[in-house]
């Protein structure tokens, strides 16, 4: 007797593979990106099946939404002038097929060696959870046990946004046509949604201490809301003074650097949180990370000097 859950799992898995195949091998680039967006949505469903609601929240915003916007925008610029397709020579194709198949077989062989039941670090985290400042496992790993990892992850995000801002310094980005950005329907929707997004990301940030949610999910959601505002012609991030934007983008890294510096001077370990006040510190860090993740996401998509109003010389 096959349970309903197995049927659902297998359908999600098959759907993922089919969408990936379509996205990778369809000849039209636009169709390929559309399939990739659908792939991101189904990934969010897979995270839910794996009992990872934190990941589902982030994937729904990132995989399905933001990556799609980025790809579509780049495709319009690059594919408009020159085709981006290159038919690989049959030798290259054959070699790539063989290598990929070999890697796949090796991975499956390794997978069969993996014990089907293992606790991993689940028990260790559960035992140490009362010692940390928060009650949610994922948040405690991110901001307490492995805070050093998160420190450097925020640094990676900062590097990426610097790369994008430098490369797009003189670029004129336009994601949707002028007449749409002025559309009353779109601005009406955005006007209704913006407060909801703001409240919900605040909720996610607060919930992160004891339930699924936290700085990264709140940050990407807030960033997606910011992009929606920019698309509807309401300029928030793109009108920020450059100096303020730079400071806010580095808020997460700066927070971590300040904290670890202070702790070192006080004679503690690098990110060894003091017992008293640890919760306040963690929440302050979460707010800093969420703000810089949100602004990073908006900056990655809209570039440094987005102007959605039509330039004067436009015919």
């Amino acid at each position: 007797m096959i349970g309903l859950e197995v049927v659902f799992d297998v359908s999600v898995a098959v759907l993922l593979v089919v969408l990936a195949l379509e996205s990778l091998y369809t000849p039209n680039l636009f169709t390929s990106i559309a399939f990739f967006i659908a792939f991101g949505l189904v990934m969010a469903l897979a995270w839910v099946r794996l009992q990872a609601p934190d990941l589902a929240l982030a994937e729904a915003a990132v995989g399905a939404g933001l990556t799609g916007v980025l790809l579509l925008d780049a495709a319009r610029e690059i594919a408009a002038v020159r085709g981006v397709e290159r038919t690989p020579r049959s030798m290259v194709r054959l070699t790539s097929l063989l290598v990929a198949a070999g890697v796949g077989v090796a991975l499956v062989a390794a997978l069969l060696e993996v014990p089907p039941r293992a606790a991993g670090l689940a028990e260790a985290v559960r035992e140490a959870l009362p010692l940390t400042a928060v009650e949610h496992g994922v948040t405690s790993v991110l901001l307490d046990f492995r805070a050093l990892d998160t420190f450097f992850e925020t640094a990676v995000l900062l590097l990426a946004v610097i790369t994008v801002l430098v490369l797009q310094a003189h670029q004129h980005v336009r994601i949707i046509p002028w007449e749409l950005s002025a559309s009353p329907v779109l601005s009406g929707l955005v006007g209704l949604l913006a407060p909801v997004v703001l409240v919900f990301s605040g909720y996610l940030l607060w919930a992160g201490t004891h339930a699924p949610g936290g700085a990264f999910q709140a940050g990407v959601l807030l960033g997606a809301g910011g992009i929606l505002l920019e698309l509807a012609g309401v300029h928030t991030v793109s009108r920020l003074p450059r100096r303020a934007l730079r400071w806010l983008l580095s808020l997460g890294v700066a927070g971590f650097a300040l904290l670890s510096g202070t702790l070192l001077l006080a004679g503690r370990g690098l990110l060894e949180l003091p017992g008293a006040g640890a919760r306040t510190i963690v929440i302050a860090l979460e707010i800093a990370i969420a703000v810089s993740v949100a602004l990073t996401v908006v900056s990655l998509v809209v570039g440094s000097n987005l102007r959605l109003e039509p330039p004067e010389q436009e015919p």
């Binding site: 990872a52 982030a58 991993g120 689940a122 992850e153």
Partner: peptide, 10 residues
């Protein structure tokens, strides 16, 4: 296990 979840999130 929450550790892979945290790593995958970032």
């Amino acid at each position: 296990d929450p550790v892979p979840h945290a790593l995958a999130l970032t």
